[in-house]
């Protein structure tokens, strides 16, 4: 899933400066699962904004909406009837959601309330970690199902580097060395020979361009 977190409140305050009528829009998909954009988070941010406006005796009028998915036009269009009175939208969603709302309603300002962090998963309650960088050419079959692009701090294809120490990354003792994990799992499986071959430099040509997929079988035109 896409993992995100709320921006610092001071940054949000700076963004909405001068706006009185705000629509807060949550998203019920990825970023809700990581507790950044669900009903609770939207309400909390709403209360925070109201409280701050009372303290500053500068009234702010807010309303809240929850979208099933902020990243698809058909869901975002539902906002149509609610934006009339709003000067700006504060979107609690990943960067795709913010852009989809902005595309649907180009006449109104849309602010990102979240920072989009990575594609990852919850490893335990309250802990999310990155697992994929969408590199466009999956190699997990060669690396025991452990991604060195996302999980090695240097994204090495022929690791580990000299900074690997007792299974930890040189960057932080909290980060396991992805290449040590790969080595250990391949050793258990008796597949260490997979490491013998030198992996060639990665082809980043697809990743250098804005990503695009066209499925002829699904086109309606």
């Amino acid at each position: 899933m896409i993992v995100a977190e709320l921006k610092p409140f001071s940054e949000i305050e700076e963004m909405i400066k001068g706006k009185q009528h705000l629509l807060l829009v949550g998203c019920a998909t990825c970023t809700a699962i990581c507790f950044a954009s669900g009903n609770r988070e939207v309400s909390l941010l709403d209360s925070q904004l109201k409280l701050k406006s009372l303290m500053k005796s500068k009234e702010v009028f807010t309303s809240e909406r929850m979208l099933k998915r902020s990243c698809e036009h058909e869901f975002v269009e539902e906002l149509g009837s609610f934006i009339e009175k709003s000067e700006a939208i504060l979107s609690l969603s990943c960067g795709v959601g913010v852009q989809t709302i902005a595309d649907c309603f180009p006449e109104i300002e849309v602010y990102p309330a979240l920072n989009t962090l990575f594609i990852g998963r919850p490893d335990e309650s309250g802990v999310w970690k990155e697992y994929c960088q969408a590199c466009t050419d999956c190699l997990l079959h060669l690396t025991a199902g452990i991604c060195p692009i996302a999980r090695c701090a240097k994204g090495l294809l022929n690791g580990p580097c000299g900074g690997s120490q007792e299974g930890k990354c040189e960057v932080s003792p909290d980060i396991p060395c992805a290449w040590q994990l790969i080595y250990d799992r391949l050793e258990t499986r008796g597949e260490l020979h997979l490491l013998d071959e030198i992996k060639k430099p990665k082809d980043w040509s697809k990743k250098n361009l804005p990503g695009r997929v066209i499925r002829e079988d699904l086109l309606l035109r």
Binding site: A153, K154, V171
Partner: peptide, 20 residues
């Protein structure tokens, strides 16, 4: 890693690794 240096904000390139 750039983290250890005096510009920890820099993007680490690592387009190739040392073996490549």
């Amino acid at each position: 890693h750039p983290k250890f240096g005096n510009h920890p904000e820099a993007k680490g390139v690592f387009d190739l690794d040392s073996i490549q």
